[in-house]
Design a protein around this nucleic acid. Structure first.
Lengths: 354, 354
DNA sequence: CAGCGCTACGCAAGCGCTTGCGTAAATTTG
DNA sequence: CAAATTTACGCAAGCGCTTGCGTAGCGCTG
């Protein structure tokens, strides 16, 4: 029997072979013992794990990956600028993802790209760097979905697309978002409502527009194209647009915003003109529950639909890892979360008799 | 000769062997051709690359990693909460890192941890998941540095530690930060200066305190322990502290803040008490150049020392990748960037005769 | 034209792990 | 108590790539 208390050989590469020699066992046995295979009795398992501990062994993930075909890593592919922008919900999604990834003992490979996302995706998939991929902000008809589907790698989408394929996604009911917010404003008597939506090439913006249309239609009204805007979701954009609109001859009495940042900008513009939000002008928006910017803390508190995007991140990772571990032979997961409309003081009745 | 125009077999795993058979060459030749080895003539190289292109081949990184001992990935290890916090410079560092990593065709493995960082580091290093590691926010005498040094994996630190080892780091001259800012306030006649520093266990906070001490000493003065604070670097913390201090019987006339967030809080507290920053009370801080919060846009514009932390992120990645590619047989890189003191309107002469 | 050095490529041994299959020894069964 | 199981482990073949070494075939040289 070998000396079991041989001291930890500092910073020496220790692999299965070393361990095997150390214990007078074969590599296979060691390997199985470490993975708690049932054919290995508890006694040797303990002998092995304690030796592994002592020598500071941890398996070479590349070799293991080669052998098993799995990496225990997932990839997040996104445009680099989403990290560069100050006002984005991206970091919150990332936080949710990385939380779950860590909990489930996976690694997260960040894969930003500056152009040619398709190529990046193809590479990532065919090089078998990761077991699965998360993509975000799908277009109305997003080419990435058929691509990933064809590549045969597990993936999940933050948001949906119109593709008729059995893919998994985590989304919220974006139509309901604008239907609820729009409905509220309409019920409060507003007739000129400025709608600050994101770009319609994105599926979610599209769905929101549709939701707003439904809100109008249900009340026997039709959309006013002049009041529908596609804009970046930033404070500055909200400010600029609101400033222009409020200064026009027939200003809106309410603003329906796609994000809290836009709402922030609208607040600033309104305040600057001496208008009181909630009285002179109403503002509502959708709230992703971002770190550090809370509608409840606005002055006055901002009415919004709410759904935590961080939670979406968690579900994305959870879903993807499950997918990977079941090898995808499961129904795709398709989550469409409901949003809550939370009434606060930023909405007031429209006084028809100005 | 094989049919060269055989169509791309959709989502079929194509490896070196496939390619070899396709072209009637050996795997070695294919491999060398793809890596542009000199022994392969241009003609076959082109034949190979074009076939690879056509079949959508990209090498299995796990296998390659096993064979070469390299992954072309680097890891960033950080406490999960740094991503969860709203007010942190972490995302800016991350942006810089991920920018360079992408440009140099590496991958970035995000490795958050909730506890036992040492173990996480050890695992990451010994499992050979990444070629190198970036760590941040070193303590005065940080145990991670000897650990990584012993593990023999390339690493670079964002900031320094007192370890007497040949490791690489990217830092700024933190002593100069507080020496310059403090010196300015002193020269403007301020005598009661509240110093809002970070926690002294961090090397940078320590260096800053030392810098402030030098500023005092150079002017024949000594620190007032009652005016030195260790605090989280958040707006709320700045606000709370400033509110308390300004309400005390002998309030400070100036605030030296470790971050823009703290300064923001101080501004709010001052404004709330009807004090005008730059006249009734002076405020200075260090500015990391974070996305979305610019001292120049404060009201009044905020005097600060400046150095872009995003750039630090870029240098971190650059340095680490160089280290990896030279196998570390190079002098360690030790960058101590100077900061610029940018004078704005948040500082006024102290009127001795109140 | 024998001998030489190139050129262009192939052989095969790894890299460190997993896993199907095989097999002694120990245990249970009828 | 022989036969059938079970237990506890070893053998060796991969996983897909890289790379040191080897070697045909070629054009040159003297």
């Amino acid at each position: 029997m070998v000396d079991q208390s041989k001291p930890l050989r500092k910073s020496q590469r220790v692999d299965l072979k070393t361990l095997a020699e150390e214990l007078g066992l074969s590599q296979s046995t060691i390997s199985r013992a470490l993975r708690a295979h049932h054919s290995i009795p508890e006694s040797t398992r303990r002998r092995v794990t304690s030796a592994a501990e002592r020598l500071g062994y941890s398996p070479n993930v590349r070799a293991r990956g080669l052998a098993t075909g799995r990496t225990e890593a997932i990839g997040l592919v996104f445009p680099l600028e989403r990290l560069q922008l100050a006002q984005t919900n991206f970091v919150d999604v990332l936080t949710g993802i990385s939380d779950v990834v860590t909990r489930r003992n996976y690694s997260l490979l960040l894969t930003p790209f500056s152009d040619n996302e398709q190529e990046v995706l193809r590479k990532l998939a065919t090089s078998r760097t990761v077991d699965g991929i998360i993509i975000t902000r799908p277009l109305v008809d997003d080419p990435r979905i058929p691509l990933l589907h064809d590549l045969g790698i597990p993936f999940v989408v933050h948001g949906r697309s119109d593709a008729d394929l059995p893919y998994s996604f985590i989304d919220i009911d974006n139509a309901a978002v604008f239907e609820k917010l729009g409905g509220l404003l309409l019920d409060y008597g507003h007739e000129r409502i400025a709608v600050l939506n994101s770009f319609l090439r994105f599926r979610y913006a599209n769905a929101r527009r549709e939701g707003y249309r439904r809100a109008l239609e249900g009340r026997g009204r039709v959309p006013d194209p002049d009041m529908m805007f596609e804009t970046p979701m930033t404070e500055q954009a909200g400010y600029d647009l609101a400033t222009a609109l409020l200064g026009s001859e027939n200003p809106p009495t309410a603003f329906l915003c796609g994000s809290v940042f836009l709402a922030q900008g609208v607040y600033r513009a309104a305040t600057e003109r001496g208008l009181r939000v909630g009285q002179d002008v109403s503002v509502v928006c959708h709230d992703d529950g971002l770190r550090g910017i809370r509608p409840a803390d606005f002055d006055p508190p901002l009415t919004s639909t709410f759904r935590s995007v961080r939670e979406a991140g968690e579900h994305l990772a959870e879903t993807l890892i499950n997918l990977v571990e079941t090898k995808g032979n499961k129904e795709p997961t398709r989550e469409v979360a409901e949003v809550d409309l939370i009434l606060r003081e930023s909405v007031g009745l429209h006084r028809h008799h100005r």
